[in-house]
Amino acid sequence: MDTLGDTNHRIAPAAPAPLHQFSVPLSATLRGVRLARLLAVEQLREWGVLLDPARLVVAELAANAALHGHVPGRSFRVALSVTAPGTLRVELTDARGDQLPTRVRPSPGAELAESGYGLLLVEELSDRWGVRHGPVPCKTVWAELDLV
């Protein structure tokens, strides 16, 4: 079974030079997740970018970074960039490059779990998303939203 990193690494387009950039390291805790969302909202407002669905994508990716990418004593990094012709790129880098997300769809009739739907939400809300390996030992989960 291919991981999302394998599939999306092959199809990820080269990113144009950003018009706007923002990046900050945060603790891989619930507080860090909350700060990621709040800082992203403020940055998007400053850039004049619509908040939704970007803030939901940031919240889900930050929660995954803190939950699944947590290594004691290591932070995660949230990065936002706006490129021409109008793409918002959200990136969350964590210290668990060995643990890649996999595409999981609930089977019809299966009992629904209480959690585990964050990446399905990211997939529905974003235009493109995937995983980039490195620098070792890290990975970056990214999502792009077309603004135009």
Rank of each mutant, 00 (worst) to 15 (best):
L88Y: 00
P16S: 04
L120D: 07
R37Q: 05
R105M: 05
S75L: 02
F22P: 00
E46N: 04
V33E: 14
V104L: 10
D52P: 00
L67C: 12
T83F: 01
V57E: 03
R74E: 14
R128F: 03
V78W: 03
A59V: 02
A65Q: 02
E111T: 12
V33T: 12
P108H: 10
L120C: 02
A110H: 13
L119M: 11
R132M: 07
E46D: 15
E123K: 03
R37I: 03
R103L: 09
E111L: 13
V131G: 05
A36S: 07
G32Q: 10
S75Y: 08
R37Y: 01
G130V: 07
G130C: 13
V122R: 03
D94T: 04
L30P: 01
L67I: 14
A95K: 03
A12H: 14
S27W: 03
E124C: 04
R74D: 15
L100N: 06
G134Q: 13
H133P: 10
H70I: 01
A95C: 10
V71K: 11
Q99T: 14
S107N: 08
P106Q: 09
S27C: 00
N64V: 08
D127C: 06
V24F: 07
P13K: 14
A40V: 03
P135G: 00
L51F: 14
H70C: 03
G73R: 06
R96G: 02
G86A: 07
T29A: 05
L19Q: 07
G134V: 07
L80Y: 08
S115A: 10
A62H: 08
A40F: 11
E111G: 14
R34S: 12
A59Q: 10
V24C: 12
S23E: 14
S75D: 15
G109V: 00
A54D: 13
R128H: 05
S75W: 04
A12P: 02
R128C: 01
L100A: 10
L19C: 04
H20N: 04
A14E: 15
N64C: 11
W129V: 00
R55A: 13
R132P: 00
L19K: 05
G86C: 04
A15V: 13
A40W: 08
E46M: 10
S27H: 06
G118F: 08
T83G: 14
A59W: 15
L39W: 07
I11T: 15
Q21R: 15
T93L: 01
L112R: 11
L38N: 15
S27T: 10
A113N: 02
R77Y: 06
P13N: 07
R105T: 08
R34C: 07
T102P: 01
P16A: 12
E42P: 00
G130Q: 12
P135C: 01
